[in-house]
């Protein structure tokens, strides 16, 4: 059983695991989905890209940020049947920039990955590409996004 003691203004409670097994009745305020100050992830509710999303790991702010943004925007807003198929130029620009900063943008170590990613990305079934054990999958708002899944699985 738990026990309490008071030391001056400080209260101390010791609890056993059993004491804490019953569900908490503490009430938390439901989060406001419209909260303008909260971070909204990579894709904002408006559909725009949040370039300051920490999830980008500095991609958008580094020396190739502009090229990255162009390529990523192109892909994100792509309406082509094969999403991103019109973005080759932008991706090439980004690639060229990144090659100038190998220590900032490590290239894929082995070609294996690239070609695998390529073939797997070409597959239409995106869901198959999502690594099952990727913890981000459940919460990802753009998991249907082909580029994302490519990125995701190649990364893992």
């Amino acid at each position: 059983m738990s026990y309490c003691k008071q030391e001056g203004k400080d209260r101390i409670i010791f609890v056993t695991k059993e004491d804490h097994e019953t569900p908490s009745n503490a009430e938390l305020i439901a989060d406001d989905p419209e909260d303008p100050y909260e971070e909204r992830g990579l894709i904002l509710p408006s559909g725009e890209i949040n370039w300051n999303c920490p999830c980008l790991g500095g991609m958008a702010s580094g020396p190739c940020g502009s090229q990255f943004k162009e390529a990523f925007s192109c892909f994100h807003y792509s309406k082509e049947e094969v999403k991103g198929s019109e973005c080759i130029e932008q991706f090439r620009g980004m690639q060229e920039c990144m090659q100038r900063y190998p220590d900032l943008y490590p290239q894929d170590e082995d070609k294996e990955n690239s070609s695998q990613a390529e073939s797997s990305s070409a597959a239409d079934d995106n869901s198959a590409l999502l690594p099952e054990n990727d913890p981000t999958t459940e919460t990802s708002e753009v998991s249907g996004d082909k580029m994302s899944s490519t990125v995701k699985q190649t990364a893992s």
Partner: peptide, 29 residues
Amino acid sequence: YALLVGAAFVGGLTYAVVTLKGDQQRHQE
């Protein structure tokens, strides 16, 4: 080609896809 290029840059972009909120984002960074 596009995908290949994409795949090549992917290494650096590992986390671009992540759309977790709040701390999780930060964590991703």
